[in-house]
Simulated assay, not measured.
Amino acid sequence: MDQKAQEKYFATYDAILRKWPVPSEELDVETRFGPTRVRRSGTGRGTPVVLLHGVMGTSLSWYPFVAELAERHTVYAVDTIGEPGRSVQTRPVQSGQDQADWLADVLAGLSHEKFHLVGISRGAWLALDLATRSGDRISSVIAIEPGGFGTIGLRFVLWSFGQMFRWLLPAPILRRIFSGDPYARRTLAPLVIRGLKYKPHFPPQYVFTDDELRAIDVPVHFVLAERNGVFDARELAARVEALNPRLRAEIVPKTTHALPLEEPELTISRILTLVADDTR
C-alpha cells in the first residue's frame, strides 16, 4: 500500500473509530511479531472477552456489537497482525505455529489469567488453531463461521466481492436485499475496499485434522450458517460433535457467511449467553 492509499485507509479507519459506541482505551501490545493494536472497552467482572475479526475487517468490524458486550464484560478487540489496521508487523508470520505464538503473546500482554475467545471467519480459525495447541489462557472459544474446514474456491471469492460492493448501495436498497442493519454494512464497506490495496502478510489457513480437533481441551461453540458456501454446515456440526465432547455446534437457518451482519441480535445473544457462567 503506497503512502497516499495508506493515508486514505487510515482516514477511513479513524472515521469509523469515532462511531465506536462506548469509551475505549487503545493499547499497543508487544509481541514477537510486532506491536498489536488492541481496543479495550468495558469493566465487567468475570473472564474478559477477546474479539478476533475476519479477513480485512479489523477490530472495527465489531463496532455494531461491542456496546452490549461491554455492558457486562471487559472486551478486547484486536487488529490482527499481517492485515490492514493499526498493528505493525516487524517479523514474518510464516506458519500456523507463528500465528498461534502471536495470539499467545497478545493474550499474555493483556495480563489476565483466562479469556473467552470470540472469532469470526479467519478470527475463529486463529482462536481454534491456538486451542488445538494450548488452552492455557483460554476459557472458551466461540467460533462464528470459522475458517479451516474447507477450501475457499472461486465461487466463494466472487460471492465475497459481490457482497462487499453491494454494501455501498443506499441503505433503503440494502434493507430490501439484506437482513440485519444496513448502516453497519455501509459504514464498513469503504474500509474493507480500501484495504484491498494492502498485501496481506500471513500464511494461508490450513484445514483442521480430526486429531487437531480431538486435542482441544476447552469448550468450543460453533455458530454455522446454513448457506455457508465453503463447507456443509450439517456435516461439519456432526463431525466436530462426534470427535470431541467439548465441541458443540448450531446451524442458523437461512444465513450465509455474513451471519453476524445478517443476525446481529442472535450473534450478541449467543456470545453473552456462552460467556455468562463466570460473571455470576
Rank of each mutant, 00 (worst) to 15 (best):
S179K: 14
R214F: 06
Y198W: 15
P146W: 13
L128H: 03
E226I: 01
L27M: 08
S59P: 02
R133H: 08
W159Q: 11
G57R: 02
I152F: 05
L126A: 01
P190C: 00
P35E: 06
G82I: 12
P190S: 00
P203C: 11
R18T: 12
L130E: 09
R214E: 11
L27S: 02
F149V: 03
T187L: 12
F178W: 10
S24Q: 13
F231T: 11
S269P: 05
K254D: 15
T74A: 11
V88K: 13
S269A: 14
K114R: 15
L117W: 01
R176P: 09
P190Q: 02
I138P: 07
E145C: 05
I142Y: 02
P92F: 07
W20H: 13
G85S: 06
R239W: 06
R40A: 14
K197A: 15
W159V: 01
E263R: 15
G162C: 12
T279N: 09
M1P: 05
E83K: 02
E263C: 12
E71N: 08
Q94A: 15
R186S: 07
F202A: 14
A242K: 14
A143T: 05
R280T: 05
R270I: 15
F156P: 07
E7M: 10
G34H: 11
G82T: 11
Q163N: 13
L158V: 15
F165N: 13
R239Y: 07
F10G: 00
I81T: 15
T12Y: 03
P146S: 08
E250D: 10
Q97K: 13
V275T: 15
R234V: 10
L213S: 09
R40Q: 14
V50I: 01
A143D: 13
